[in-house]
Amino acid sequence: MTVVDKTVKGPTVLIQEDLCKGCGLCIDICPPGVLRQDSKLNHLGFHPAIYTGQWCNACGLCFYACPEPGAIVVIKPSREER
């Protein structure tokens, strides 16, 4: 189960690295290009996608491109919260 970090203030993407199979489809589809493949291997033996840490606009495309149900969560805070 993905734990959503409620402390997030800006649009962001959370990647469960241990559920990522390293296919890279999220990286390909990301319009601002803020995802990249980690050089480290995860416990499954794949290079997981990771968020570079800024400029995610929470468009959600990475979520839809990802074949794994739990690997990606995208959060877009409401205006008030920003």
Binding site: M1, T2, V4, K6, V8, Q16, L19, K21, L44, A58, G60, F63, P67, E68, P69, G70, A71, I72, V73, V74, I75, K76, P77, S78, E80, E81
Partner: peptide, 27 residues
């Protein structure tokens, strides 16, 4: 809480209890 969250749909199990062996959170 006012945020839009795009995540694991409820209509998919969040633990794949019928899947044998380990890795019951990945397909």
């Amino acid at each position: 809480a006012g945020s839009t969250v795009i995540q694991w749909p409820e209509s998919l199990y969040h633990t794949f209890h019928r899947k044998p062996g380990g890795g019951q959170e990945s397909t």
